[in-house]
Nucleic acid binder design. Structure first.
Length: 828
RNA sequence: GCCCUCGUAGCCCAACCGGCAGAGGCAGCGGACUUAAAAUCCGUCCAGUGUGGGUUCGAAUCCCACCGAGGGCACCA
């Protein structure tokens, strides 16, 4: 099909639809974005990866932004001539598919794979530079077979284990959740209030890696957004302190507490254990048993949101027993209170009301003694009920008296260690990753439960453990996994002893699927291995990862954990999966996130219909720094479209031949072109895409003027400029750029035209403007040579008429010369 | 409550290692073209950088305090 460029140009606007339908099939045929695995290919390799999408429907504005930004990076490396791996796949297990399937009486696969096709087509139209041959879907048996295989590797290493515990339960999703998936007491996915349940579930031992997850952040500094690192640091929550053993009257075993303030040990006046911990049951005395049981029932009924309310009164119950302070033999009443968490530390704390606000609140509520042991020169906590947590000299503390906080901590730990009553200790806030889900549409946990052999790994040759084909109502949530209802599927034999046994009926958290997908892309067609060592060596780790900040402590933390485990298992030879990370913001409308419930959705398809793919992409990238949110009310896709039309018109106007030598071009324009090349290159290197586009816009304006009222359309410099504009625009507006490239007389595709290098000769300036200040105020401007000497400049400045006038009658003090840009004459 | 990031024109955003506050865009205004409008083109108005101090010859930039916005953690001992 040939489209006459007269029609395309339309003088004032351009026909977006025609350009799009003209070039899309050409690109499909050229397939320019396929990564090369040819060993003879000497080009440097780079792996650019976008966080893969969940196939919830068609692509939306959020995808449009994220992938437009990721594509700038990928296309930049293509232009630079690198061998780029830029794959796409789908995170295709998950709850929405299951809910859709129940409604429609189908299997979740139907809805899922339909949506994937829709999104794949939209991606193609949106012009993203993917290597489609690397495509994967986490719900394919060929993929989840390896998810299961990896689970088994973890299991064999003792890093996947089952335990009974009080777990987060989402009543709406009808499944348990990992800690990371509970946000302020609500389900991260559906915002329902999370409750607690006592269940036996599978966990990954991510806590074993807490220290390394922290330490290895050193490698990521400067390469990952600061705030992501901070969030992960907060989440891991390392705290240093000590374990201290307290004897319990009438018990054989001491109880250990964790404290970050061992220096305040002499100020302990009571002892608290978490009511839902086994400790509480063990410590409660006969008389207090019924009181305690009653309290425990209440605690269990309290929702997470209630429990977290900051103004909530402290509650608790005396257990009728006493602990003994190891350093001064004081008797401390033992209480159970729900402000102490069974999951953190040892589930028991010493109560030091004078120097811990929570303990003080509790002491106030139950009229317990307050003993000050650190003199901070603040009002007495016993009177003000404001705990003093600051530094000061120790008092009432025997051997610690007179020491400051740091010294006292050091000393008391020495004392405790000497007497074998405690030791230095580190605790993490991070909990193990609960990975079981009571849902259907996920990878079945490849474990067989045998009465005799207990938990037995499915043999690797038997993988994948395929999902049974359940449809519609069979998937309705019942509080247990729908797989439990698939009676034929459950029944199997124990791989160890051959006796009848049953399959585990839970599926894995979908974050397990996404914790390793980046390893699979280069090996997506390998049927013998999860990932091929050669392929890993070629491409991994991911050089540039692009995605939203919402995964700061979910996907990104889990992936880092996975990589470290696989590194320990000898399966990968790096310990961080993503060398560099770029977070893009969200698209919002009128200040709030677009959402169906708010009804403020802008439809991506409609925007593309109205302005075209290029204008939408340009709008996304030009709106501001990539990490900032875009308020759609603040941006102008119409303006973007207008700019693209202007750029395209330049290409139409160029009158020199495609083989003309630029060297004869008009120098001023050439200098502007090369300055722009330099600046745009530097800006893209640091992800300042919005500013890079502003520079290209500037060059478009300059070139327009050169054509209309300067050197004219036939000057080679005009061609040089427009060629660069076309190449630069190819990163963000591929259709327009391709059309320009074609108008300039070249064959497709501009995507691989090659990035332009700035000529240093043309970057040199013959003269610069020097600012002359008198006492900091601008008095004159001089046009001088860039390598003018300080003396010369000073002489020149002092002979300037306006300077002389200003200086008249005053005495010259210091003269600050910053050749060649500035000179400041200070008057005394 | 603790921690992090950010406050520049009506709006979105630039401004290198402290050196003329303005590159780009949106909106507005004026003009050209048009019978008119749209579109297009040309031109143009607009802030002294959240507030108050400090350092400096010189501060949007560095330091301190405060105000405001956004985000993270939050009964984690």
């Amino acid at each position: 099909m040939s489209i006459n460029s007269e029609e395309l140009e339309g003088r004032h606007s351009f026909n977006v639809d025609e350009i799009q339908s003209k070039w899309l099939p050409v690109w499909e045929k050229l397939n320019p974005f396929q990564a090369s695995d040819d060993p003879a290919d000497q080009r440097p390799r780079i792996y650019v990866l976008d966080m893969f999408p969940y196939p919830s429907g068609d692509l939306h504005m959020g995808h449009a932004e994220a992938f437009a930004i990721g594509d700038v990076v990928a296309r930049y490396w293509f232009q630079k001539g690198w061998n780029v791996l830029h794959p796409i796949g789908w995170d295709s297990f998950g709850l929405p598919a299951e809910n859709a399937a129940i409604k429609r009486g189908e299997n979740p696969a139907t809805w899922t794979y339909q949506n994937i096709e829709t999104q794949a087509n939209s991606f193609k139209r949106y012009g993203i530079s993917f290597d489609w041959s690397k495509r994967l879907h986490t719900s394919d048996p060929e993929y989840y077979r390896w998810t299961q295989w990896l689970f088994l590797q973890f299991f064999k290493k003792g890093l996947a284990y089952r335990k009974a515990s009080s777990v987060n339960w989402c009543p709406s999703c009808q499944t348990v959740l990992a800690n990371e998936q509970v946000v302020a007491g609500e389900c991260e996915r559906c915002s329902a209030a999370v409750t607690k349940r006592e269940l036996t579930q599978w966990y990954f031992k991510i806590t074993d890696y807490a220290q390394r997850l922290l330490d290895d952040m050193e490698q990521l500094k400067g390469k990952w957004p600061e705030r992501v690192l901070t969030m992960q640091q907060n989440w891991i929550g390392k705290s240093e302190g000590a374990y201290v053993d307290f004897e319990i009257e009438g018990a054989n075993e001491p109880v250990t507490v964790f404290t970050t303030r061992p220096d305040t040990l002499f100020g302990a006046t009571f002892f608290v254990v978490a009511p839902d911990s086994p400790l509480a049951k063990k410590l409660v005395s006969g008389q207090q048993k019924s009181e305690f049981e009653k309290y425990l029932e209440e605690v269990k009924k309290t929702s997470e949101i209630e429990r977290l309310a900051s103004d909530r009164k402290k509650t608790g119950v005396f257990l009728g027993t006493y602990a003994v302070n190891p350093v001064n033999q004081e008797r401390l009443p033992v209480w159970a209170a729900d402000y102490v968490l069974s999951e953190y530390g040892t589930g028991a704390v010493m109560g030091v009301p004078a120097h811990d606000q929570r303990d003080l609140d509790f002491a106030k509520e139950f009229k317990l003694k307050v003993v000050k042991v650190v003199e901070t020169n603040e009002a007495d906590p016993a009177e003000t009920f404001i705990a003093t947590a600051g530094d000061g000299l120790l008092t009432n503390s025997g051997p610690l008296d007179g020491l400051n906080k740091t010294e006292a901590i050091k000393r008391i730990i020495e004392i405790l260690e000497e007497k074998n009553l405690g030791k230095r200790a580190i605790n993490f806030r991070l909990r193990d990753w609960l990975l079981s889900r009571q849902r259907y549409w996920g990878a079945p946990i490849p474990i067989i439960h045998c009465e005799d052999c207990k938990e037995v790994a499915v043999e690797e040759e038997s993988l994948p453990v395929l999902l049974p084909n359940l449809v519609g109502d069979q998937l309705s949530p019942k509080g247990t996994s729908p797989l439990a209802a698939a009676t034929d599927w459950i029944k199997t034999t124990c791989p160890k002893c051959g006796k009848p046994a049953t399959r585990d009926t839970d599926t894995m958290d979908t974050f397990v699927d996404s914790s390793w997908y980046y390893l699979r892309y280069p090996s997506n067609e390998n049927h013998n291995k999860a990932f091929d060592a050669e392929a890993l060596k070629k491409w991994l780790p991911v050089a540039q990862y692009v995605g939203g900040v919402e995964h700061a402590i979910l996907h990104l933390l889990y992936s880092r954990f996975f990589t470290k485990v696989l590194n320990d298992l000898g399966l990968v030879d790096f310990n961080e999966p993503f060398t560099s990370l770029l977070n893009q913001g969200q698209v919002i409308l009128d200040g709030s996130a677009m959402s169906k419930s708010k009804g403020n959705m802008v439809d991506l398809g409609e925007q593309i219909e109205e302005y075209g793919v290029d204008a939408v992409r340009l709008t996304m990238v030009f709106a501001g720094p990539p990490e900032d949110d875009i308020d759609w009310a603040d941006v102008s896709p119409a303006g973007a479209k207008k700019f693209l039309a202007r750029a395209l018109r330049l290409a139409k106007d160029v009158q020199s031949a495609s083989d003309v030598s630029f060297a004869n071009g008009e120098k001023t324009l050439r200098q502007a072109v090369h300055k722009t090349i330099k600046e745009v290159t530097d800006l893209i290197d640091v992800f300042r895409f919005n500013v890079a586009i502003a520079r290209v816009m500037e060059l478009v304006n300059i070139t327009r003027k050169a054509i209309d009222s300067g050197c004219g359309a036939a000057d080679p410099a005009v061609r040089e400029s427009v060629e660069f504009i076309s190449i630069a625009l190819s990163l963000v507006a591929p259709y327009t750029a391709e059309e320009m490239w074609s108008l300039l007389g070249f064959e497709p595709t501009v995507a691989k035209a090659g990035w332009r290098e700035a000529d240093p000769e043309l970057l040199k300036q013959e003269s610069v403007i020097c600012v002359v200040q008198v006492s900091g105020k601008l008095r004159a401007k001089l046009s001088v040579s860039p390598d003018i000497s300080e003396e010369e400049l000073k002489k020149l400045a002092l002979s300037e008429a306006n300077v002389i006038k200003t200086l008249a009658g005053s005495k010259i003090g210091t003269v600050i010369v910053r050749a060649p840009k500035l000179i400041n004459i200070v008057v005394e």
